[in-house]
Every structure is written in structure tokens, then in C-alpha cells.
Design a protein around this nucleic acid. Sequence first.
DNA 1: AATAGTGTATACTGTATGTGTACACTAAAC
DNA 2: GTTTAGTGTACACATACAGTATACACTATT
Lengths: 130, 130
Amino acid sequence: MARLQINLDSEVPVYRQIVDGIRILLVEGKLAPGSELPPVRRIALDLGIHFNTVAEAYRILADEGWLDLRHGRGATVLRRDTPLAANAGRVQEFRHRLRALIAEIRSQGASAAKLSAELRSLADELKHEA
Amino acid sequence: MARLQINLDSEVPVYRQIVDGIRILLVEGKLAPGSELPPVRRIALDLGIHFNTVAEAYRILADEGWLDLRHGRGATVLRRDTPLAANAGRVQEFRHRLRALIAEIRSQGASAAKLSAELRSLADELKHEA
DNA sequence: AATAGTGTATACTGTATGTGTACACTAAAC
DNA sequence: GTTTAGTGTACACATACAGTATACACTATT
């Protein structure tokens, strides 16, 4: 599995950074159904954190239906049919969180032009996946 | 000032939702330098929370250089020259957080096509602002 | 069986979040 | 000038969250 990037100084809790990082791989198909994830202790060792923190992340992804998590056997990626249609509220929430993210980065000095280009690039990637 | 939208059930702390919401208005120029923000008690009353929670949000925005916060007088928006050039690290962080956000919403059922369209729309808005 | 390797459960510590309350500063009324 | 109303500030507190330590239970292999 691709190496996860964790920032211990971030305001975002580590377990959520792990969830976010693995979910990217899952959604983008870089972790296919049937794959086995590394044991919690191994990831924990790599990242320099406690294995329970990784286990918490695995549990969340299992709750979301991404992982089959079984006592003594490890974690495997499930085939996960898209759960629900996108309703308007979800897309609106996305829009709001995206605006907040853009505002935060601009507030730190990133130019609107540069971010606009990044957004277009991501939009294209997404389009090809769809 | 435009009404802030706060979700008390969100996993995101209320004070940070306030920071995010106001920062959007600031970055997009909808709160111009010289404007006065409402007193912390008034916003708190509107949102049904304690005024100290709003005060915490104001302090953060003041630390970021957006607000002039003065004892007994209220909060006014400062002219804030862009603080730093966008370095590569910041844009990379943006990209990663954006991917995480997209993955999360897709994981909840939003289609790649729809999100791609949203991204393009936001990219265009940004471009016009630049 | 025994063992090594997996995830689980629970108690514990430090930190973050939000509130209550008293305070200090400013401006306006008098 | 003093008073008063309105503002942000400081700090203690209750509670929830994040991360760790440790003992446990399940699975597969020997």
C-alpha cells in the first residue's frame, strides 16, 4: 500500500488523517476489493503511533462499508456498491466545505489563480474517472 | 453581515465553523476593511451558543491578521495585505485536503461527474476574482 | 497443543471544546 | 467627572475527545 502521510502537528486528529488517506486510495480504486491491508501494528510502527489509533481508523472505514475487519485475520477491502444517490444537501455541504478550504489556503497566501488551476486539474481527473 | 450557518451536530468544533464561515466572507471580499463585526454576544445569541465560543473565533481571526479586536470597542475588519507568497508545500497540502474532501463525499454517494462540475464552477468563480 | 500473528476491549492520561462568571476597557449620557 | 451600558478578556470548570498501555480473544500454522 502507498505510504500514508501523517502530520502529528496538524489540528486534524491522526486517526482521521489515516481514514482520509486510505479512503482516497479506496475511492480512486488504488486499493481494489480483495486486497489485504497491513496489520494495524505495522502501520502504527511506520507512523510512530499506537496501534489502537490505526485500529480506530480501520473501524471507521469498516463502518462505512469499505473494509471487512475480522478478529485474528486482518482487514480486507470489500466490493462496495455505491451506497446512496447524491442528494442536494450533500453537494451543498461539499460546496461549503470546499469554499472554506479555498478561503483558508488563500488566507495563507495562495493566489486565486493558482488555486483555480488546481481545481480545474482535479476536475479533469475526476471527469476521466466518471 | 450574512447569517452564519452553524451545525451543532457536526464533528467540526463550533468555534472553527465560525472561523471558517467568516473567513470565507473576508477572503471573498464580502466583509470589506473597515466593516464592523457584530458583538460576540449578539452572534452567540443568534446561534444559540455561549459568547466565549464566538470570542475564541474572533481571537483566531485576529491572530491571522484579519480583525482589529479591541477591548470595549468591538471588532473591525483590517486591510490585510497578502501575507506570504504561496509556496509549493501549501499548494500540495491544498491538493491533498481537496482529494480527501472529494473522496469523503464520493464515499457518501456523490457522483464523480457532479463533483467535477462543481469543481469547475468554483474554479471559474475563483478565476474571475483573481 | 503450542505459538505467532491478528484485531478487540477497557482503563487511563492529557488536550480540546464549550460554558459560567467575574473582570476591564470604551463610549455615550448625564 | 461620574455613571451606565455595551464591548472584549481572563480564568476556572465540566465534559468529551484523542491517543496510549495493557490484557484479552480469535485465527492460522506448526
